[in-house]
């Protein structure tokens, strides 16, 4: 990606496909992700969305916050629904449109993983964007497969989550699809370029996993959404990368950190109430995991 022309704030389009006045929480990371991704996708796009915070952001009948056609679908079926949209577009001679599934971490890595795995295995011509806010936020912050270890949620209320975060993008990458990328709400330009790239790679399944801070679910002031998202990346906890036809490379801020010092992960933990019961042992364990992961990264 580093060799390609990168979008800058000045070159980024000011056309908005997401309308203001929607029902997302104040300071919602998804707002940044959704708004930016839609800019990259453009108006020739059809969306498939399962129940999630995005359903609420998108608006309640009869008003929609998005200037795109969208089919709302059941929780477990997002990737299959996107498949169906693509099939219909092919059958009706409108195959040039982007078909985009947009789902949360639960709808992607937990209840929705069967349909997603099926679509990836079949190589469906769809873009799947997962906004990962690391818990079931729309139902009030219950643990999900992608909730990190030690995090307090309403279903891990005392001890915090006992298991590590499920590595969903690696699972998807194991399907051998053409494009897998991670991104962060705190780096919208990197996200924009990845969505653009995904859209340009028409023909197969493309997957983008976006780290998406949630002020109410993570327990931080709304003004810190971007700051915390950046800390997630600069600590090396959540890495920005792409896997293009099997070739892995770090991108953006993560690429810049190779061989350099990273922010200690504890600084990230301290900013959020959800980590308040983290023991020193778990902090040490997490820092150790990050360090050994980064030991394998080369410039």
């Amino acid at each position: 990606m580093d060799n390609e022309k990168k979008t800058t704030i000045l070159s980024l389009t000011d056309e908005e496909i997401m309308n203001p006045g929607n029902r997302a929480c104040s300071g919602c990371g998804l707002g940044i992700v959704y708004r930016t991704a839609l800019k990259a996708l453009g108006k020739d796009t059809v969306l498939a969305v399962p129940p999630s915070c995005l359903t609420v952001l998108q608006g309640l009948y009869p008003v929609a916050s998005t200037k795109l056609p969208c089919v709302n679908v059941t929780f477990a079926s997002t990737a299959a629904a996107a498949t169906g949209v693509r099939a219909a577009l092919r059958a009706t001679g409108r195959d040039h449109l982007n078909v985009v599934a947009f789902a949360g971490d639960g709808g992607t890595g937990d209840i929705g993983i069967q349909a997603l795995s099926g679509a990836c295995e079949r190589g469906e011509d769809i873009i799947y964007i997962c906004y990962d806010n690391e818990a079931y936020m729309n139902t009030g912050v219950q643990r999900s497969g992608t909730t990190p270890k030690g995090v307090m949620t309403t279903t891990t209320p005392i001890k915090g989550k006992l298991q590590h975060k499920k590595d969903v993008p690696s699972i998807i990458a194991a399907h051998g699809i053409d494009y897998v990328a991670t991104a962060s709400a705190a780096y919208p330009l990197d996200l924009y370029d990845k969505v653009k790239k995904a859209a340009s790679m028409k023909g197969g399944t493309r997957y983008i996993h976006v780290h998406t801070p949630c002020p109410s679910g993570w327990g931080f002031p709304t003004r810190n959404t971007v700051k915390i998202g950046k800390l997630g990346v600069t600590t090396g906890l959540f890495d920005l990368y792409e896997i293009v036809k099997g070739e892995f490379s770090l991108t953006g801020e993560s690429a810049k950190r190779v061989g350099k010092e990273r922010t200690p992960v504890t600084e990230y933990f301290q900013t959020q109430r959800r980590f308040s019961s983290l023991s020193d042992a778990v902090i040490e364990e997490m820092q150790g995991m990050i360090d050994s992961k980064w030991a394998n990264y080369t410039a």
Partner: peptide, 18 residues
Amino acid sequence: ISVSEPGPGDGGNTGSWR
């Protein structure tokens, strides 16, 4: 059927949340 039309302000004038 439940078919929504795009427009601003589904959440009302959300400026009042401030």
